[in-house]
Design a protein around this nucleic acid. Structure first.
Lengths: 209, 209
DNA sequence: GTCTATAACGAGATAGAC
DNA sequence: GTCTATCTCGTTATAGAC
């Protein structure tokens, strides 16, 4: 009896919870945490409002689950990049690609969005958002350190400060791209970012002097 | 009769409207457009909710007035910088100072905030936000063009693309600073930004090769 | 121009049947 | 696990007295 009910029930539960998370994630990325409601999620998932509370008792619970899943998925993507690319520039291009993919779906980075909403967020969500940025900078610092020591990158400042700089530039580029209504803005910023980190090519740097 | 009433009435009207705008501006910069209410403004200004509607009939009207005033004040600040500083780097430092001042008050750039809320904004607000960024980039492009032609700046890319890059970096730095709960983040990004735009000093660039 | 009072609606959340 | 029904509160906005 129990052995037939629990696994099935658990499976269904997980699936519905994920569908809720998917819908809520999109809503947060497009509208922000304060501008979506259980009614919106209800419509998107095709389930009644009250049923949502069975999976996520409060909006805070839903929000915390949302950020934690986002962080986990992002970290997995970073690990994938590191295993697939060797050159620092290629790794950075792939990193930028993550942002591009989000913006192409007309969304903002979820944690960038939540950073704007930070004053109104429940504390556990706020903390998790801070960790997201710390994790990003930490990964980038490692990639950049390896790149500089191999002479693949060149810039003023430390790898850690450049890592922080990259996160800010890309988050800002997404934000401004939305504000200007011009998705291509992110591409322009990304190009310039990479261009200014490449080691000087003897033939080209002639123009500067 | 009319000559004594109209000027007085008009004066009082403007003053209250400005107090409302001040309170609402702060609320938008801290919480976002969807996370503040007429009740919040009412409390801050010390006037009843219904009275607010006399000055700004709808929240959309208030929002449009808010962005337009913000743009105007910002443009005046930019004009002031241009008249007080000559060197490109000094002008850029002063420009960055505008962002620093906002963040020190624990606020986000209003248009950066509204860029996050863009999907939920009434169209006239959205348009005005887009113009804010265009105006910023246009001013920066002029400053950077002058700086590069005088040899005060050095970087890969065009003045216009660097202007867009600077706006994105600073908006992103404010956003991430809030998300991380570390106001100093903006200073770090600003330092690196300037450092990577300075022309190469012969003695120091020795380290690179 | 400001007030009190209230309308009309949507939010997050709960109770309890199935 | 999902449903219907309902509660309570906060939201934007209006009516009309002063």
């Amino acid at each position: 009896m129990w052995y037939s009910r629990i696994p099935m029930g658990a499976k269904r539960d997980i699936k519905t919870a994920d569908r809720i998370l998917d819908a809520a994630e999109k809503l947060v990325q497009v509208r922000g945490f304060n501008a979506f409601s259980y009614a919106d999620v209800s419509k998107a998932v095709g389930i009644q409002k009250a049923s949502l509370h069975h999976h996520f008792a409060t909006k805070t619970d839903l929000g915390v689950a949302l950020v934690e899943r986002y962080r986990r998925v992002f970290l997995e993507a970073l690990a994938g990049i590191e295993s697939e690319e060797d050159a620092a520039v290629d790794r950075l291009e792939r990193y930028i690609g993550l942002y591009r993919t989000v913006l192409r779906k007309k969304r903002m980075c979820m944690c960038g969005m939540l950073a704007a909403d930070v004053a109104t967020l429940p504390t556990p969500m706020r903390d998790s958002v801070a960790v997201f940025f710390a994790e990003n900078e930490s990964w980038l610092t490692r990639v950049i350190s390896a790149g500089t020591s191999r002479g693949e990158l060149h810039f003023a400042g430390t790898p850690a400060s450049m890592a922080a700089f990259i996160v800010s530039s890309l988050e800002g580029a997404m934000l401004v791209a939305r504000g200007r209504g011009e998705p291509a803005h992110l591409d322009d910023v990304a190009s310039l970012l990479i261009a200014n980190m490449r080691p000087p090519t003897p033939s080209r740097s002639a123009k500067a002097r």
